[in-house]
Design a protein around this nucleic acid. Structure first.
Length: 268
DNA sequence: GCACATGTTCTCGG
DNA sequence: CCCGAGAACATGTG
């Protein structure tokens, strides 16, 4: 479900109920690796806190509280934040009761998501190793980072320590738009190609945010609405369908353990 | 039963 | 240290 656009759409809606609210009550499911911070400690640290801000870096959201402690959230593969509860649903792992009769609910079927509380003035290794956000990075830095690596450009885009926010869908869509093959070695892209690729990365991410993200299986916005950008995917999930530019059948290969969809004719 | 899934992280061998 | 392949995490869908 969640790459940068889905996380940003989620952040914008959650911000409206969370910022300015006080956490009155915290409910958690049983301990699991979903909880980087143990549920018992998490409850103790969150109760009574006033939320000052909700920001995003790549696929991570970060809530900042009145005492300068923070809460790091990652949606993993199937995580979703909702402003309404899922009564009786066994996949809900965190429920926050907020002032003003509001609530925030974290559901995650596969539990690849993460919740980590950060004490004031402290960070987290997961946060520290992230590369620049895909919507913020400038072309010069993007090019420099790609030039330093011999892995495929597809794997470079997916590596969150090189660039953060791009996942499997938007990597394929951006490479198609920039007419670059996913197997191309990262360091073989020249400066104009890197610039073109970054422009398309940003264009694809922005457009998806405008459409509310991509709903492939179960992604829902916090208000329960479906995303709409899946209808604009040009190669992702379209193996063997005609390329929208040249009608060549879309190819699928596995790179870094993830499927890559591309046109072997118009991507070079 | 099998293949596959929008993510991250670790291991092993080269 | 860099790189690729494969697996692990947990659960669902087709």
């Amino acid at each position: 479900m969640p790459e940068l656009p889905e996380v940003e759409v989620t952040r914008r809606q959650v911000e409206r109920v969370l910022v300015g609210a006080t956490i009155l009550k915290v409910w958690t499911s049983e301990p699991s690796y979903f909880f980087v911070t143990e549920p018992a400690l998490l409850k103790k640290r969150l109760r009574g806190r006033l939320v000052r801000a909700l920001t995003r870096h790549g696929k991570y959201m970060l809530a900042t509280f009145d005492d300068d402690s923070r809460l790091l959230l990652h949606l993993g593969m199937t995580g979703q934040l909702s402003t309404t509860d899922f009564p009786g649903d066994p996949h809900v792992h965190l429920r926050l009761e907020l002032s003003g009769n509001k609530g925030l609910f974290f559901r995650d079927v596969r539990k690849f998501g993460k919740v980590e509380w950060l004490r004031p003035g402290h960070s987290s290794p997961r946060l520290d190793k992230l590369g620049p956000d895909a919507l913020v990075v400038v072309p010069e830095e993007f090019y420099a980072r790609l030039s330093a690596r011999k892995i495929s450009i597809k794997q470079a885009l997916l590596d969150q320590s090189i660039l953060s926010g791009v996942g499997n869908i938007y990597a394929d869509e951006a490479l198609f738009a920039a007419r670059i093959l996913p197997e191309r070695a990262s360091h073989t892209l020249d400066q104009p190609e890197a610039k073109r690729l970054l422009r398309e990365v940003k264009r694809v991410l922005d457009k998806s945010i405008q459409h509310g993200g991509s709903t492939i299986n179960d992604y829902l916005q916090p208000d329960g609405e479906l995303g709409g950008y899946q209808n604009w995917h040009r190669v992702y999930g379209r193996t063997a369908e005609p390329c929208p530019r040249c009608r060549t059948a879309i190819s699928r290969v596995v790179l870094g353990g993830r499927s890559s969809h591309f046109c072997s004719s118009c991507q070079k």
